[in-house]
């Protein structure tokens, strides 16, 4: 079953989501990746206000390709989330409601998600042309000097993703590979000489 969610995401709909659920998001989301996170985190460290209100928002880890003439946005698939791990707990503690990215997260991020009742969605890496079909509009909010890494607001319709880690800390990246792992696998630790 596919769950449709209208943004901004509510406390109740976050609580209803379980790891592994297929979801279609409609509404607006923020974007940001490495360089923008570094700047936002530095502001938080200095106790300065952020140039964008993150409370209640989802942030999509993406650095889009430019929009071809006649297109609203360029291809925009997720980037690897772990690179944002060191900045993420601070953003969650300040009211960010969730993230969209791909790949594993650190223990610290998952703890901050559980503490703040947040959700982490996975989009399919490398499906950028397909994903862009569900992004209808973009607006640069800040850090335009970063080019592809600027913070944008995307208006999305039926943006496809999967609940990778839910608000209770259930994590498909931990559970699902185990279901398909063959225990006869050869050892892959490199022994000491």
């Amino acid at each position: 079953m596919i769950k449709r969610i209208t943004l901004p995401i509510t406390k109740d709909s976050v609580a209803d989501l379980n790891a592994g659920d297929s979801v279609l998001l409609t509404g607006t989301i923020l974007t940001g990746r490495d360089a923008a996170h570094k700047r936002l985190f530095a502001l938080l460290e200095q106790g300065e206000p952020l140039p964008v209100d993150i409370r209640g928002e989802l942030i999509y880890y993406v650095g889009p390709a430019p929009a071809k003439t006649g297109y609203a946005v360029g291809p925009a698939g997720p980037t690897s989330s772990y690179r944002m791990d060191m900045y993420t707990p601070a953003l969650l503690d300040r009211g960010l409601k969730g993230m969209i990215g791909k790949g594993a997260r650190s223990r610290e991020v998952i703890d901050a998600m559980v503490r703040n009742k947040c959700v982490y969605f996975a989009a399919i890496g490398g499906a950028a042309a397909l994903i862009a079909k569900s992004i209808k509009r973009e607006e640069i909010l800040c850090y335009a000097d970063l080019g592809t890494e600027a913070v944008r607001r995307y208006t999305v319709e039926d943006f496809p993703c999967i609940v990778a880690i839910d608000s209770r800390g259930n994590n498909v990246y931990e559970t699902e590979p185990l279901r398909y792992r063959d225990e006869s696998i050869l050892p892959c630790d490199v022994p000491k000489p």
Binding site: A65, P75, G77, I124, G126, A128, A129, A132
Partner: peptide, 26 residues
């Protein structure tokens, strides 16, 4: 789920080729 992901990757690659846009934003 894996089958569905592979279908979406194949569909993505078809869209990219047909519209001459990048397969991946990176």
């Amino acid at each position: 789920v894996g089958k569905s992901v592979l279908s979406q990757i194949i569909e993505n690659n078809r869209i990219a080729a047909e519209e001459e846009i990048p397969i991946c934003q990176d």
